[in-house]
Write a protein that binds this DNA or RNA. Sequence first.
DNA 1: TGTACATCAGTGAACGCGCGTTCACTGATGTAC
DNA 2: TGTACATCAGTGAACGCGCGTTCACTGATGTAC
Lengths: 193, 193
Amino acid sequence: MLELPMTKTRPKNYHHGDLREALIKAGRLILEEQGIAALTLRACARKAGVSHAAPQHHFATVAELLAEIAASGFEDFVAALDKGSANAPGPRERLKAMGRSYIAFAHANTAIYKLMFAAEVPLKSERLQFSMKAAWNQLVVAVAAVHGSENVEATAARVWSLVHGFSMLTTTRRLPPTVDQDDALEALLQQLD
Amino acid sequence: MLELPMTKTRPKNYHHGDLREALIKAGRLILEEQGIAALTLRACARKAGVSHAAPQHHFATVAELLAEIAASGFEDFVAALDKGSANAPGPRERLKAMGRSYIAFAHANTAIYKLMFAAEVPLKSERLQFSMKAAWNQLVVAVAAVHGSENVEATAARVWSLVHGFSMLTTTRRLPPTVDQDDALEALLQQLD
DNA sequence: TGTACATCAGTGAACGCGCGTTCACTGATGTAC
DNA sequence: TGTACATCAGTGAACGCGCGTTCACTGATGTAC
């Protein structure tokens, strides 16, 4: 009898390596392809190629997974706004570019964008709190560069409300079809000064 | 044997009378008490006191019921903004009062407010389209009285974005706790002029 | 370097749950005559 | 006014589905000696 080397009969990845991150990535794919309603622990396990009980070792509830997915969304979001406003010649242009990038991100990544602001997502996650704080700080810095540091948080909240409201109304199709969205976008960006 | 009169053995309301409206009202209660995830056809049937198969005669899918509930929300919403701005001395004050009423409605009726803007709600419903149009017209009239009729739709979209964004960010707790929400609200209402 | 052993991170079967949906049924209601 | 009958709007049992969760298990990994 030929004795095969153990490495050939051994399943290569009985232990996954980093199932936690793999589940988060799987969740993002499911979100894009099928929407938030399809985002279950079992679906993520299937997508990641593990048994449906495996996620239990990494996420006690589906809500915990949602929070991590939302956090990864905020990380991408901050990067997109940074990139989109990097070449602005001055603070006003920079703030406008961030506004444009914000709305572009919402339109290009609608599913995860909605999850980032969904009430179902528990805010306890450390990673989520950290990435949300990073987004807020990014905004406050850009707003302060235009409006000064007086009442900067109230102004930042106003700016955020404006672009967030527009993103939500357009992605959920609540504006009547008679509204020219490009006109509305430009009118809105004027208000960031 | 004593023959009982038929009226005594007959169940009084075998036919409900207006189960359709009753299911919508039941749905609103469930929404308030348990949130959108609990809003199922079976739950509405239970709340309305009928068998779980009964709603089938009125709503083919749960989405259809959601749309009618959302529509009833928009009806209340329009009434609340009308009432809240009725005593304003001029157009500017009227628009501001509407802004305040908008945000107050969102905070006092968070569950149905979120449903009104939820992506899951199909927009095909006639009643929903009608009530959404009424809300939009109400806004356009108030905006035109302040800013004139030039570009009125773009301006109305901007105003709506502002108050909607603020309502969503505050009801979903996305603003950092360091932000003074009253300050932010006042800063925001200044922008309606 | 090898061996024993504890722990970690998977598997796969099983369970109960509430859901939407279908079905044959039946009481209530409306209408034709 | 009464009667026959069609239709409407309910009932309640049954079905299949996917979900979260639990369980005994087992292969892989890390560590002590």
